[in-house]
Computed example of a mutant assay.
Amino acid sequence: MAKQRINRELIRGLEGERLATLAQGDVPKLRDIYDDTLTGFGLRMRPNGSVSFVYRWSAPEGQQKKALGRWPAITVEEARAAAKSFIGRTDHKSDAMSTRVAKHERRVADARHCAMPTVGSYLDGDYRTYWLGTTRSETPEQNLKNIRRDFVDLLLKRLDEVTRPMMKKWIEARIAAGHKPTGINRTLGAIGGLFTHAVEHEIITSNP
């Protein structure tokens, strides 16, 4: 298999060759070209001119191939980055044990990241069920409404995306708006209960 630097110039050159072949009345051939710097990263140009990016590697169980996407819906740069990300998480036959362990940890972190709920979904789901079943408040829904009202900017963020600087900025904005410390602390306590519940149930590993 030919190895060349995969970039937009190469694709344009391949397309020019394909059109020249058609102009001569011949049928273009299927072209498979692999990158000369990133091992396993390649492209396939079909006779009809469509181009797709692939990654080939030797896995412990044998040769494998993964489709990365079609050009131009995915750029060369995006395809190359996707291949590098995939390499960093996929076991290769040549990997040392320490490398495989590191890749496994990345895969576990990715799965956890994808499963992480947003503040809003957790508020309406597990935390709401817990709160309504344990609170002695005579207006249990009000606590949940207050969180939605006062932290509207956080509702679409994942639980692990909320940081201490975000909360500090929120406190500073409330103080600047003239809110009393007692009210600020009460509201912080409300959302703090949500994050404490998430930590206790190992949804996240630390408080915001």
Rank of each mutant, 00 (worst) to 15 (best):
residue 55 Y to L: 14
residue 58 S to W: 05
residue 58 S to N: 12
residue 59 A to S: 11
residue 60 P to G: 03
residue 61 E to T: 10
residue 61 E to M: 07
residue 61 E to Y: 09
residue 62 G to Q: 01
residue 62 G to N: 02
residue 64 Q to W: 00
residue 65 K to F: 04
residue 65 K to P: 03
residue 67 A to E: 06
residue 67 A to C: 08
residue 69 G to F: 02
residue 70 R to L: 07
residue 71 W to E: 00
residue 71 W to N: 02
residue 71 W to H: 14
residue 73 A to P: 03
residue 77 E to A: 15
residue 79 A to P: 04
residue 80 R to P: 05
residue 81 A to T: 07
residue 82 A to Q: 09
residue 83 A to T: 09
residue 83 A to C: 11
residue 83 A to G: 02
residue 86 F to Q: 13
residue 86 F to D: 01
residue 87 I to H: 07
residue 88 G to V: 02
residue 90 T to M: 02
residue 90 T to F: 07
residue 92 H to Q: 15
residue 93 K to P: 00
residue 93 K to Y: 14
residue 94 S to M: 05
residue 94 S to F: 08
residue 94 S to L: 09
residue 96 A to G: 05
residue 98 S to A: 15
residue 99 T to C: 04
residue 100 R to M: 07
residue 100 R to E: 11
residue 101 V to C: 09
residue 101 V to S: 10
residue 101 V to N: 13
residue 101 V to Y: 14
residue 101 V to M: 15
residue 102 A to T: 02
residue 102 A to V: 06
residue 102 A to L: 12
residue 104 H to W: 10
residue 104 H to R: 15
residue 104 H to D: 10
residue 107 R to P: 04
residue 109 A to W: 01
residue 110 D to V: 04
residue 110 D to H: 03
residue 110 D to K: 07
residue 111 A to Q: 13
residue 111 A to P: 07
residue 111 A to D: 11
residue 112 R to I: 00
residue 112 R to W: 04
residue 112 R to F: 00
residue 113 H to E: 07
residue 114 C to H: 12
residue 114 C to N: 10
residue 115 A to E: 05
residue 116 M to Q: 14
residue 117 P to N: 05
residue 117 P to C: 06
residue 117 P to V: 06
residue 118 T to V: 06
residue 118 T to L: 08
residue 118 T to E: 08
residue 119 V to W: 01
residue 121 S to M: 11
residue 121 S to G: 02
residue 124 D to M: 13
residue 124 D to Q: 15
residue 125 G to Y: 12
residue 126 D to A: 09
residue 127 Y to T: 00
residue 128 R to T: 03
residue 128 R to P: 06
residue 129 T to F: 12
residue 129 T to W: 11
residue 130 Y to F: 13
residue 131 W to P: 00
residue 131 W to C: 03
residue 131 W to N: 02
residue 132 L to A: 08
residue 132 L to Y: 08
residue 134 T to E: 07
residue 134 T to R: 13
residue 136 R to G: 14
residue 136 R to H: 14
residue 137 S to N: 13
residue 139 T to A: 11
residue 141 E to Y: 15
residue 142 Q to Y: 13
residue 142 Q to W: 13
residue 142 Q to H: 14
residue 142 Q to G: 06
residue 143 N to A: 15
residue 143 N to E: 13
residue 143 N to M: 14
residue 144 L to P: 05
residue 144 L to G: 02
residue 144 L to F: 01
residue 145 K to I: 03
residue 145 K to E: 11
residue 145 K to D: 11
residue 145 K to Q: 15
residue 146 N to I: 12
residue 146 N to R: 15
residue 147 I to W: 09
